[in-house]
């Protein structure tokens, strides 16, 4: 029981971090970024390269991963989203192709086989009968910190309010002196950084492999569909529902069924409540 609670909390925090970057792009940029998982892959491999291939400090590896994610996001905005003027379907197709291309590039550079990441912080902490790796605790604390910071940023700062404004009414934002293009660019950067950070933690949880962008994408889509696109609080709650569901399935039923209930939940919610349980598309 304790095992389930602890693992559930750890996994859910990570899922929330992964999903929130995806939410952000949908609500502000109105693009379903199907290549979002690629940020996780890029982040994971950037961390691997800096901290394990080059042998630099782990923290530098995390920073490098986030930087790569931010740059990838900014470039995607500059070279795909902006030229296509946010025209949804072509952007989605182009980004999906990009994810596949990036996967090939990763195979070319790092090979096909999966890699195990060294723990960001070695060692385990004993909670009752359960031993929890420090790395996973670190991942959860960082995830929560980032989510809370992001929430406050969106609610309390001029730039954050501008993001909300663009997500709700582009013309209204523009005549308030907000340049929607700049805000979009910034959101693509933030989303890339969040995804890459999530990728480092996700790869530490599982392993690093070139196709690792698919599973987190499904999680992000699930959280967003069930939570209602755009709600940070909704994202957080649903990430916990899904996280706990997976942990319970894995430890009580069978590990093979892990993703099945997540998919089932997506379909049920889509049918019952297409706008999600916390429903609306604008960030808040």
């Amino acid at each position: 029981m304790l095992q389930i609670i602890i693992q559930g909390l750890l996994l859910s925090g990570l899922y929330a971090l992964i999903a929130v970057g995806f939410t952000l792009i949908f609500s502000v940029g109105r693009v379903l970024n199907l290549a979002y998982g690629a940020y996780l892959m890029l982040g994971g491999y950037a961390f691997f390269y800096v901290s394990q291939t080059l042998g630099m400090p782990k923290l530098l590896g995390v920073v490098a991963a986030v930087a790569v994610g931010v740059i990838a996001g900014l470039m995607k905005h500059r070279f795909i989203v902006k030229p296509l003027k946010g025209d949804m379907v072509p952007v989605e197709i182009a980004t999906l192709i990009l994810a596949v291309v990036l996967q090939s590039a990763v195979v070319l550079m790092f090979g096909d086989s999966s890699k195990i990441l060294h723990s960001i912080i070695p060692g385990v902490v004993q909670v009752g009968t359960v031993s929890v790796p420090y790395s996973n605790v670190f991942a959860m604390i960082v995830s929560w910190t980032v989510l809370i910071a992001l929430y406050l940023f969106i609610r309390k700062t001029h730039l954050g309010r501008a993001m909300q404004a663009v997500s709700m009414d582009q013309k209204g934002a523009a005549i308030s002196g907000v340049n929607p293009d700049h805000v979009n660019m910034m959101v693509w950067g933030i989303s890339g950084g969040l995804g890459a950070l999530g990728g480092v933690f996700f790869a530490s949880y599982t392993q690093l492999y070139p196709a690792m962008w698919v599973a987190p994408l499904i999680i992000a889509v699930a959280v967003v569909i069930v939570g209602g696109i755009g709600s940070i609080i909704g994202t957080l709650i649903v990430a916990h529902i899904i996280g706990f569901m997976e942990v319970m399935t894995t430890s009580l039923i069978a590990p093979e069924l892990r993703g099945v209930f997540t998919m089932a939940l997506i379909i049920i919610v889509l049918v019952v409540s297409p706008k999600g349980l916390f429903g609306r598309e604008e960030i808040h």
Binding site: R161, A162, Q164, A165, M168, G172, A173, G177
Partner: peptide, 29 residues
């Protein structure tokens, strides 16, 4: 806008899920 034109358009184009105060604060961007 920054150069000094303020605009209240026909359909208002407000931010519906933000408070009155936050709507005004966006105007102060």
């Amino acid at each position: 806008v920054k150069m000094g034109v303020g605009y209240a358009p026909e359909r208002a184009n407000l931010f519906p899920y933000m408070s009155v105060r936050d709507n005004l604060l966006v105007g102060a961007y």
